[in-house]
Amino acid sequence: MLAAVSFLGELLSFAAENAGRLARLSYEHVAITLWTLAIALPVAVSLGVVISYYERAATVVLWVAGVLMTIPAIAFFGVLVPVLGIGNPPTIAALVAYAQLPVIRNTYIGLTQADDAAIEAGTGLGMTRLERLRRVRLPVALPVVMAGIRNAVVILVGLAAIGAFIGAGGLGDFIFYGISAGDTAMIVVTTVALSALALAFDYAFGVIEQWLRLRNGEEVDRAVLTRTLAAVHARLS
């Protein structure tokens, strides 16, 4: 009991003493994650759109994206570091690869979800293929795509820690340092920060997903933040 209390004290004092550095590392961590999303999403969503038109390509693309996910990060770095150097670029490149499967898959599933009758009506009323995509298929798919992004982002936040191994910074820095220095408090506090970050991303993207579903007229169990935003929105309009 006493040992537990004193360990907790150790953790708190570590967190207090290193708050500034933890904040900086968290910021780097978020930056890596966001850069990854900025590159990965356009690629993955475009691929998802393309394979929704070409059924046969779908199997191949989803299979390749699945294989990418099974490649260990260390192996990726081995190939990427000689080409891209060390630091952020190879880390982001590897993370972009990991983000593909959940986003491509959900885009593909979301796009094939639109009601056949709605597609037929759209065609019959004079929508071109692009207009059907933009006005019917994409809006219906968007919440599903967002669920995929949410899925990817949680994976990315965790994986981004490994980037520290090749000098990318982020919270991984403290974890690696803690391991080599045998500093348990450092490892535990950083891991908690990492999990909190992942949960925060998960929640934020979850709220966006709910908002998209509400806009499409779907019924959802609203999260607290969604309810709050809806209330604010109602107040303003």
Binding site: D115, D116, A117, A118, I119, E120, A121, G122, G124, L125, R135, V136, P139, V140, R215, N216, G217
Partner: peptide, 14 residues
């Protein structure tokens, strides 16, 4: 104008 049995309304729109 085109009307079909399955109606085919865009459910995501108002």
């Amino acid at each position: 104008g085109y009307v079909i049995q399955d109606i085919g309304l865009f459910d995501h729109m108002t």
